[in-house]
Amino acid sequence: MKAAKFKYIRPSSLDEAINLLSDFGEEARILAGGQSLLPTLNMRLSQPKVLIDINRLDELQGISHEGKHIRIGALTRHVDIAESDLITENIPLISEAIEYVAHVAVRNRGTFGGSVALADPAAEMPACTLALQGTLVVEGPNGRRQIRADDFFHDLYETARAPEEILVEVQLPIRRSGESFAFMELSRRKGDYAMAGLACKATFQDNRFLSVRLVYFGTELKPTLGENVMSQLEGREWSETLAEKVIASLEDDLDPVDNLQGSAAMKLHLQKVLTKRTLAEVVQRLGNV
């Protein structure tokens, strides 16, 4: 389990990193926290010619309050998200979900940007970013551009980021009154990838769902919106009966894949259970706000 030979370059500025990416194209990989990349290199599942280590790029660091959103630099470590008051106060969904991200050792090294850019279908942060309708800022040879989370996740490990672009930051909207959040996931052991998971953001008016964002992860090839369920909830008042009714339509939203954790049928079942539990929770939390 030794990585194949690769060239290692550590640029000292974002411009330099982008130039390197342009030069090497698909032969290069960006090394951020390395928590997903290094195991694949060591198992020789991936043999890039060049590693571009972006850990010294200060431009990608930090969490800050900027107008109506919180900016999370792509190199921000999971541990710093977990310990950030700005996140706790303004983005409660992230604050809740970050505890589910792997184990302490992984959270110490792994980065928020790395997780979102990799877009592992069972990962928590891509799902939350989509649930919160965040904005992803990437920079490439042609400058910066913003990508809405709704447009970012294309397929299994495929995103709207071009190979010569670097994810520099993620902007997440600050919570507003009338909003309630909930996050649930099922994994066999604490810290494992989710077998099934659900990130939820709901807005209420007069106890009725004004709008709901339900993002399912762990069962699809990418974080996936439960659009049928969402649309059926809108304008309705919560009840157990409603929950039973809407989860039937989850079958139209999800198309789980079989894997070693269990069958597609089991995963759909688990997402139905999580849908009921998450919605009940999000309603209860609104009452407690």
Partner: peptide
């Protein structure tokens, strides 16, 4: 509860890593 060497019909081991082969951990 957890540990299982899973093989397919061609006797290929499908879970040869600690990501897929679950050992009991303290939390549980």
């Amino acid at each position: 509860l957890y540990e299982h060497c899973i093989y397919d019909d061609q006797a290929q081991l499908l879970n040869g890593s600690l990501i897929d082969y679950l050992v009991p951990m303290a939390s549980e």
